[in-house]
Nucleic acid binder design. Structure first.
Length: 646
RNA sequence: GCCAAUGUAGCUCAGUUGGCCAGAGCAGCUGAUUUGUAAUCAGCUGGUCGGGGGUUCGAAUCCCUCCAUUGGCUCCA
């Protein structure tokens, strides 16, 4: 007998070789039906695998990440089986579970798969799932595995196996399909009840664009039909929040083919919103000792040769502008830092002057690949809320800390709760890639790690992700359909001070090199506004929204009174409109609710007589009537609370 | 840039075995109505069917090409 310890520390005895499934069965038959995988002493395995020694276990069902992972991973195998059935001779790449579902990269040879054929794969999968094929695990040696997949002609699997360490290789077989796989897998395919093959894309083998492009097929599956329906509804809902749609509906921005793709045009309401965001940040920055600067949109090519950007990105960028004078070339500014370095340099700096914090809402231009453009989140011309802090090495930690405070204040004010942070460090195996001394790097990395944890952030630390010029901390949020976007970024830079030969005179009367910190709490105004739109579904906080209130007269008879209210509110800095169309009140309410105007102020006979307004709040309905002065105070209070620092 | 798809009025969408002057709803304009908490009624305007080329007696519809957009991949200062 062996001792099995459950998560609640209970211990029970089972015969040697018992399986997770049998354990589940012993607890409850219902549980046995729901078990997808098992953790044995922290290692995730098939629920059908024999357990041979005393172990602590955890059974995984659909409601935990490990369970879903096994479910979708098995679904990927099922899809592969369907594809092999439909398109014999297909070669298989990798087929992992992802955050929402799974995909498989396949090489279909001459066959070009079209989206209309996804349904065929789906039907085949449903048919195969119902056969209740068992997932069989098998261990073979590496040479045997190589032999097997070579014979099959699966060059991708052969390559994968070749890269594996020597030893045993595990295979999983179900139905007619065998795959190289670490597992774990479901007990059998019949647990997969609802299947949707969602989309189709090209994907380079091993993510390398120089290698062959495979066909990536995405899908998602569920243990219950109703879950798939819910998921599809969720996707529909997300679509409604898409910033491209909301941005058009609310008249915030647009694009024009004539102007060029990836070059957003901010409409009056969008511009007003953005300006308010900028002023909000400017105010904080002033408090934190930043000084505003302004630099031009172009610079001599030499400037970017000096900074190193030209060598790295020049040929993939907008090409230089040449002038009538021979040999003169200018580049559209791809970033602000070289300009700011020159501002730092315009006069000698003393250690007493540091840190110097130069801030600019600087518009930059980058020739992003055409396939990469996306609404406002990925564009070719955008404005960074950029600043560069020039400081002494011993000031890095404190400056970093202050920047984090700014970012957190912004996120709090805008109710961004669901963000993640990532610390990017050097690759320890490749130290030569980086500029700057070991000592400085150690200090900076240490400072970032310490400050981040002092601020209570749980950052993911990723070695090897740092830029060659310094470590960084990024803030990421997800958009409506779950795509992750980087917003705020704080980066230490040892490179530019070197390249621009930046100096300060130290206490010792010697020249020293300052360190630069690049930082952008929003990232770019375009991307930030896009994400803000998706977060709020266009219902912006009261201090930010383009229009705060609209007066709705019941009929033309109350036009004069309505205009009086309008004037009073606008004179009190409440951004107010009037809807004096010849429409019924129900229609006016509907239209202005759809425009996400936070307060609708209805005035008719009753209000005119009493000198009041009837207030209706977005999403909440009728709040009753009040004096305009009380309404003004209500809004002011709401704005103050939203911007409060506590 | 690569793979796949899409492109008809300001918006959402009908319209292909190739065939009368290309349709609807919303928006816009005009008029009637003077309205009490999510759509009042009527009339009118509006499209070189993404651009160009081709096949055909005839193309929104079939073919080629370019552009843009969408979902991925790669890239991302």
């Amino acid at each position: 007998m062996i001792k099995i310890t459950f998560p609640d520390s209970r211990v029970k005895e089972y015969p040697v070789g018992t399986t997770g499934l049998e354990i589940a069965q012993s607890l409850s038959p219902q549980l046995a039906k729901e078990v997808l995988a098992i953790s044995v002493n922290g290692e995730i395995r098939d629920a059908t695998r024999a357990i041979t020694e005393n172990s602590a276990i955890r059974l995984h069902k659909w409601d935990d990440a490990e369970g879903k992972h096994a479910f979708w991973h098995s679904s990927a195998h099922l899809m592969a089986e369907a594809i092999e059935n439909l398109y014999p001779g297909t070669k298989f790449g990798i087929g992992p579970a992802i955050e929402n579902g799974f995909y498989y990269d396949v090489d279909l040879g001459e066959k070009v798969l079209s989206e209309t054929e996804l349904v065929d794969i789906e039907s085949k999968m449903i048919e195969l799932a119902a056969r209740k094929s068992i997932f069989n695990r098998e261990e073979i040696s590496k040479p045997e595995a190589l032999d097997l997949f070579s014979k099959k002609g699966d060059e991708y699997k052969v390559e994968l196996i070749s890269d594996l360490e020597d030893g045993t290789i595990t295979l999983y077989k179900h139905g007619s399909f065998t795959d190289l796989c670490r597992g774990p897998h479901l007990p059998d395919t019949s647990l997969i009840k609802a299947i949707k093959v969602t989309s189709l894309a090209g994907a380079y083998w091993r993510g390398d664009e120089k290698r062959k492009q495979l066909t990536r097929i995405y899908g998602i599956t569920f243990p219950k039909k109703s879950m798939l329906d819910e998921y599809m509804i969720l996707l529909e809902e997300a679509k409604k929040r898409d910033h491209r749609k909301v941005g058009r509906d609310l008249e915030l921005f647009t694009f024009s083919q004539r102007v060029g793709s990836g070059l957003p045009l901010w409409l009056p309401k969008g511009a007003a919103l953005r300006e308010r965001l900028e002023n909000f940040l400017k105010k904080i920055q002033k408090e934190y000792g930043y000084e505003g600067v302004i630099t031009p949109h172009i610079g001599q090519k030499e400037l970017y040769v000096t900074s190193g950007h030209y060598a790295k990105y020049g040929k993939d960028s907008f090409q230089p502008i040449t002038t009538p004078v021979e040999g003169e070339e200018f580049l559209l500014k791809p970033m602000n830092c070289p300009h700011h370095c020159e501002i730092y340099k315009y006069k000698p700096r003393s250690y007493k002057d540091l840190p110097v914090r130069l801030a600019e809402f600087g518009t930059v231009y980058r020739y992003e690949q055409s396939g990469e453009l996306h609404g406002l989140t990925r564009v070719r011309g955008f404005t960074q809320d950029d600043a560069h802090i020039f400081c002494r090495p011993d000031q890095i930690k404190e400056e970093f800390s202050k920047v984090i405070d700014i970012v957190l204040y912004i996120f709090k004010t805008l109710d961004f709760k669901d963000f993640t942070t990532q610390i990017s460090l050097r690759d320890p195996n490749n130290p030569d890639k980086y500029i700057g001394s070991d000592e400085n790097w150690n200090k900076a990395e240490q400072a970032i790690i310490e400050v981040t944890s002092e601020k209570g952030l749980t950052a993911v630390v990723v070695p090897g992700e740092a830029a060659f010029y310094g470590p960084k901390l990024d803030f990421m949020v997800k958009d409506a359909i779950g795509r992750k976007w980087q917003l705020g970024t704080i980066q230490v830079d040892y490179n530019l001070p070197e390249r621009f030969e930046l100096e300060y005179i130290g206490q010792d009367n010697q020249k020293h090199r300052p360190v630069m910190i690049h930082r952008a709490p929003f990232g770019s105004m375009e991307r930030f506004v896009a994400v803000l739109i998706e977060h709020t579904a266009g219902k912006f906080p009261i201090w930010l929204t383009p229009d705060q209130a609209i007066v709705l007269p019941i009929s033309e008879k109350y036009q004069n009174y309505a205009e009086g209210v309008l004037k009073l509110l606008n004179n009190s800095d409440i951004r107010t409109l009037i809807d004096d169309r010849n429409e019924k009140i129900g229609k006016k309410i509907r239209d202005n609710e759809l425009k996400r105007i936070p307060y609708l102020l209805i005035v008719g006979e009753k209000e005119e007589t009493e000198g009041t307004i009837s207030v209706r709040k977005q999403g909440q309905g009728d709040l009753g009537s009040m004096k305009p002065e009380d309404f003004i105070n209500l809004i002011r209070k709401e704005v103050d609370e939203a911007l409060s620092r506590d």
